[in-house]
Design a protein around this nucleic acid. Structure first.
Lengths: 216, 216
DNA sequence: CGACCTTCTATTGTATACAATTACGGCTCG
DNA sequence: CGAGCCGTAATTGTATACAATAGAAGGTCG
């Protein structure tokens, strides 16, 4: 999208993800325009996108607020994400080529390097992780999936707990990715789908454990 | 959404679905504003929604055109729809109550009545069919699903071929619905999921046969 | 004292004017 | 005659002003 719209989207998104606003908190378009440094027009574009990702919700009468998800909704999000990412992995497996495999290896190399230190570099991890999944999505060659999945991945709650992941958790992710790459190399759609499913399901339970622990 | 935005959405959507514009055809925001009878501002809102549903696409540089889907994309859409509707049916099955079952029965009654005539009333069929699936979606109680699925259901291509469905095809749909209702009554998630899957998959193949036949 | 109505304010929705960008057509120069 | 460039027209993007609507506050009447 165009410049102002795009920056508005990014800034508002970052604002929410970095906890600039509590879940449930009301926001006016004008406030958001101020934050983004643009007028209300591009803000409205951005807001619509964020509504679609369900990061923002419109209360009964058109007033904006930061989404506040129940445990049930978060569960459902992971379930949907697992379904769709599994499908993406299956499609990718049957369309894989050497070049993409090399890229996946490279990205996962960076990811593993980022966590194989005393103080794991979580930012780089998250970044590489996203790149890894994006590459698979790209290989899946499904415009629909490419439109639907992104809305499910960067969940503020997840990001907020990212720093609490143990080194073991992060390393397990790296290993999952390695196995995914093996499945891709073998062009085994079932294998790839299964690995992806457990990758996401595990992430869910790891997340749940952390969230439950830090809640009280 | 608000009045002008909403009417713009509906009118533009109807315009496309009823074949007012060929796939691939370029449209300007101004033309759409004219069609909808509102200014460009609400049109842009509507356009963004339609882009999300992939009924409109933005070409390299911001110019709008009517989406033109390849066979592969249509295939993929049915696959995704099958996945998501199956999931919706499973969730609905475990949350079903007598009231909803009664409603489903009533709607399917109308549907069957509409096709049990010499000249099946396809419009009423499509309408009841949508209502039926909407009721299930509602029972599934998943905001995410409710946001994602609608974009996959009313496909212009499908609508365009609707009049060519045989009476047998339509009656089979009615029977599928009856079996779904039975699965819901039994609260058997697997059963409901399986029936929904074959319901959608069959619809896909019925559609494909018609599309292939009328193409050349 | 409380409920309801009224008025005023805050917020969202729409239109329009203008800015920026992109496509198109013609022109020149090789 | 063709390729590349420039200028103009068309289209999208942004800002702002105004309209419509919902919420809040205060005042009156029972």
């Amino acid at each position: 999208m165009s410049r102002a719209s795009e920056t508005a989207y990014k800034k508002i998104r970052a604002f929410i993800l970095q906890g600039g606003a509590e879940p449930g908190m009301q926001l006016t378009e004008e406030k958001l325009a101020e934050i983004a440094g643009v007028s209300r027009t591009p803000v409205r574009d951005a807001v619509q996108r964020l509504e679609n990702e369900m990061l923002l919700v419109r209360s009964e009468s058109k007033r904006l607020s930061v989404a506040d998800w129940s445990d049930g909704e978060i569960d459902e999000m992971f379930t949907l994400r697992a379904m769709l990412e599994r499908h993406a992995a299956e499609r990718a497996a049957s369309r894989m080529d050497q070049d993409s495999i090399d890229q996946l290896k490279a990205v996962n190399g960076v990811l593993k390097k980022a966590i194989n230190q005393e103080a794991p570099d979580v930012t780089t991890f998250l970044d590489s992780n996203r790149k890894f999944h994006d590459l698979i999505l790209e290989r899946a060659q499904s415009p629909r999936l490419s439109k639907m999945l992104p809305a499910l991945i960067e969940q503020p709650v997840v990001r907020r707990t990212a720093n609490q992941y143990s080194k073991a958790d992060l390393m397990q992710s790296g290993q999952d990715h390695d196995e995914l790459i093996a499945a891709f190399a073998a062009q085994d759609t079932h294998w790839a789908g299964a690995v992806m499913t457990s990758h996401i399901r595990r992430a869910f339970h790891t997340f749940s454990a952390i969230a439950d622990g830090s809640e009280e």
